[in-house]
């Protein structure tokens, strides 16, 4: 009984600010709306409209033509490109900086991206890929790739990619720190044994380092996945989902439905779908971590 009393304040808070709004969002997704007023129960109509909408899935363009491919596919592309890139780059940096003198200072500098608020991150991405002043385009011009130098966030074929690459920069610091912690846990004896046995550095990395940092990899994947599913700030600030919906993602599409179009039933359907997807994937992955 006393235990219950201690956790009751937290339970009440969670019920008020998580469970109740989530339950209301699910309920709203089954209702029709007119000018901020709930009108009638419409069953799965909002979901049917959502899945039939090109802004949600646009298979006519995917994958043969440039985006827009629909917010759901953009999120999936984000997962496919972002998570492996972040994990590999994080692991590479963690291994590289492990033995380097002053490595912790360099790690701190890389981790700054993670500390920056995502809204600021979005502004930095827009600036970095700017055609006139961006560092990416300056680098491209320096190496003679002038044809690629332009405002990446303004074009449908590069907007999504620029956001994903920018996010990789922001989140690589997190992956690197997790992997650094994971590397510390690997016994040095293993590396010494491998050395005595004449294993090459690549073989040591493949056969010892990668298997031993598997728990860290799962943490990186789960955290990155949750980040990607709820990604909003960067898209909102850097491209507003455009041009022509070419960089829209689920959370941004929900925002558009809710506040630009005031279609609260559709917005609730998007966020219900997003919540369910995130919950199912997270549960599966967390069980694997266990």
């Amino acid at each position: 009984m006393r235990r219950l009393i201690f956790i009751l304040p937290a339970l009440i808070l969670v019920a008020l600010i998580v469970i109740f709004p989530a339950a209301e969002t699910i309920r709203w997704s089954f209702w029709g709306w007119d000018r901020l007023e709930m009108t009638e129960f419409v069953g799965f109509d909002n979901y049917e409209r959502l899945f039939g909408s090109r802004s949600f899935i646009n298979m006519a363009r995917f994958p043969t033509q440039n985006p827009p491919w629909g917010a759901l596919i953009h999120n999936i592309v984000w997962v496919i490109v972002f998570i492996p890139l972040t994990a590999l780059l994080g692991l590479f940096l963690a291994v590289l900086l492990r033995e380097v003198k002053g490595g912790s200072i360099i790690k701190s500098m890389i981790f700054i991206g993670m500390v920056v608020p995502l809204v600021v991150g979005g502004m930095i991405i827009r600036f970095v890929f700017d055609g006139r002043a961006g560092i990416v385009n300056a680098a491209l011009r320096t190496v003679g790739l002038d044809d690629l130098a332009r405002t990446w966030t303004a074009f449908p074929d590069t907007a999504l990619l620029s956001l994903i690459l920018g996010s990789v920069w922001i989140w690589t610091g997190f992956a690197m720190i997790i992997y650094s912690a994971g590397l510390e846990l690997i016994s040095k004896d293993l590396y010494e044994s491998a050395s005595v046995d004449g294993a090459s550095p690549w073989r040591t990395f493949r056969r010892i380092t990668i298997p031993m940092v598997k728990p860290a990899t799962l943490i990186v994947v789960v955290m990155n996945l949750i980040y990607v599913l709820r990604i909003f700030d960067i898209v909102y600030v850097a491209t507003r989902g455009g041009p022509g919906g070419a960089s829209s993602v689920l959370a941004f599409q929900g925002y558009l439905f809710a506040f630009q179009q005031r279609e609260w039933g559709m917005a609730s359907a998007v966020f219900t779908f997003l919540t369910l997807a995130a919950a199912i994937i997270s549960v599966v992955l967390v069980r694997r971590v266990k």
């Binding site: 074009f155 507003r240 455009g242 041009p243 022509g244």
Partner: peptide
């Protein structure tokens, strides 16, 4: 309104 704004951004570059 949101469609109009966003589609014009697309038209401007394509």
């Amino acid at each position: 309104q949101s469609t109009f704004w966003d589609q014009l951004k697309l038209l401007w570059v394509n």
